[in-house]
Amino acid sequence: MKTRVFVSLKASVFDPQGRTIVEALQSMGYGSVSDVRQGKYFEVDVDTGSADEARALVSEVADKLLANPVIESYRVEVDE
């Protein structure tokens, strides 16, 4: 089962990289870009036929390793 995990800094945490990217885009003339948040993307393959099982397992590893709950939140997608 193929899953994807998107990890990003919580809204309350300043993201200096995202800020720098916004400023670069605005200086390139993309004035309508008002914010960018940079994050991490993981493709996690799980040996199971059950989407629920895959989601539960990947959420667990995201909690334990892929994301730091102090500063980051995450979202899991599973191929149905």
Binding site: L9, F14, P16, Q17, N68, V70
Partner: peptide
């Protein structure tokens, strides 16, 4: 210990 360390503010 409690907390986390982020990228330096000016990167």
């Amino acid at each position: 210990l409690e907390g986390a360390l982020l990228r330096n503010r000016r990167l």
